[in-house]
Design a protein around this nucleic acid. Sequence first.
DNA 1: ACTTTCACTCAACGACTGTAGAGTGAGAGG
DNA 2: CCTCTCACTCTACAGTCGTTGAGTGAAAGT
Lengths: 186, 186
Amino acid sequence: MDEPKTRAARRAATAQRILEAAQTEFGEHGLEGATVRSIAQRAGVDPSLVIQHYGSKNDLFAIAIRLPRESTGDDVAGHLFDVLDVRLGELPPETRALVRSMLTAPEATEAMRDFLNERVANLARAGGGDDADLRAALTVSSILGLTIARHFLRLDALAEISGPQIETTVRPWLTAALDEDVRPAR
Amino acid sequence: MDEPKTRAARRAATAQRILEAAQTEFGEHGLEGATVRSIAQRAGVDPSLVIQHYGSKNDLFAIAIRLPRESTGDDVAGHLFDVLDVRLGELPPETRALVRSMLTAPEATEAMRDFLNERVANLARAGGGDDADLRAALTVSSILGLTIARHFLRLDALAEISGPQIETTVRPWLTAALDEDVRPAR
DNA sequence: ACTTTCACTCAACGACTGTAGAGTGAGAGG
DNA sequence: CCTCTCACTCTACAGTCGTTGAGTGAAAGT
């Protein structure tokens, strides 16, 4: 197994365990629903140790919802599909924690808004054309809605089908808004 | 002004004031974030009166998130646009309360899932064809994503434009999935 | 006019929360 | 082998929560 020798290494390892426990609890119950005690119990640790490691529950939350940066060269829509996963059966824990609290915790709302605004800007720049911002925002918000409906609400029509099927079925339709003029003739 | 005479009428009036205060507070801060005390203060009433009227905070919440039934003869997509408003600048208070808590309060999650499942079924029945359920679910989840991105996250590209503009711009694209086969050629 | 009803307020409870500070014991350093 | 360090636990506190039961005073009933 991986039993680290040095004291600092052991401490870092429990810090990581606490962080992962926090992401799970935040992802399941949200910022307010998850308690320091429940996080500590999941990590097999005393509640006060959680505070000693991360300063406060809110500081821990801020770290727990950090999304991975977009790797250069990735296609923008593809990265969004990875983070707001529509491919796999399960969401990354930090995404799950962020989305779960994004409607009730102001820090999470702001983090999600910043993330999506950046994604919209990248997508609009790549697509170009008239109304590029609006069409990019449509694509992004639709992916967000799909993620919520599939992974959090578990709608009947979305929960049962496979991730790849969703991608091959849905992606062309979603990205269609980027290439066409969505405004109808008046 | 409207000062009701009978005792029962006065009581019913304060019950209504409490309910409206609850919808506002739940819509702003969610089920956990809103407190009985904050609801009572907004209604200009003692906290215990809130409980006397509605039994418990959770019972009050269950009533506060009830959505209006679909009026017969309405087009399904139109009703959805009304409830998950993309037309007006502001959401109905019960919708706002429901959406706000739908990711953190199990009762709200269930209520939203039931509501959207029914909407998907109606839409799929009206559209018909292959993959009707999936395409209807795509439309519905996209409208949901749009509502969240616009009214709760306030994305730059969506927050500033007018409701009617959104409808005339977005609706054709959203409902397009209902009439076409979204699956690409293999 | 006297009594009763009842919509409402007041005060308090037990439970639970995030967090601080003292204590402890195993391992690092010499 | 002794001492010190420090990762961790224990105990406790102050605040907030939902909810209860007794009390109050104005209006309804007679």
